[in-house]
Design a protein around this nucleic acid. Sequence first.
DNA 1: GTTATGACTCGTA
DNA 2: ATACGAGCCATAA
Length: 107
Amino acid sequence: MAESEAWREKAARIRSVVRRVPRGQVATYGDVAEAAGEDVTARQAGRALKGAGGAARLPWHRIVAAGGRIALPGDAGLEQRMRLEAEGVPFSGRRVRIETCRWKQAD
DNA sequence: GTTATGACTCGTA
DNA sequence: ATACGAGCCATAA
C-alpha cells in the first residue's frame, strides 16, 4: 500500500483543519499541524496538501509557510498568491501579512 | 537496506 | 536579505 491507515487518517485530519480556515484568512503549515494533532508535523501538513489541491474542495491556497512565505513553487505559487489577493488577504511584497490575517482556531 | 527530494521550521552566519 | 545546516517525515528510486 502506498498509504498506510495511520497516515490516511492523519491526512484527513489535516485536510479537515484546512477546510475550516475562513475566507480572507491564512494559516501556516505549523498552525495546521498543531490544530490537526500533536503527532502531526508541519512537513506532514504540506505532504497532505500535495496532490489534494484541485482534487478536493480544499482552500489549499490559504496555507502558507512560516512568516507568510509562499512555499508552493512555480505557477501554483502564482495562482495561490492570486487567489489570496482575490480574497482580500493583505500582501507585503512577496509575503502575506501573516500577523494581520493569521487564522486562529478560535474563529 | 540506503539515498535523494520536498507545499516545513528554526538557528546561525 | 540570502545561504546553509540540522531535525523532521513520507515517497520514490
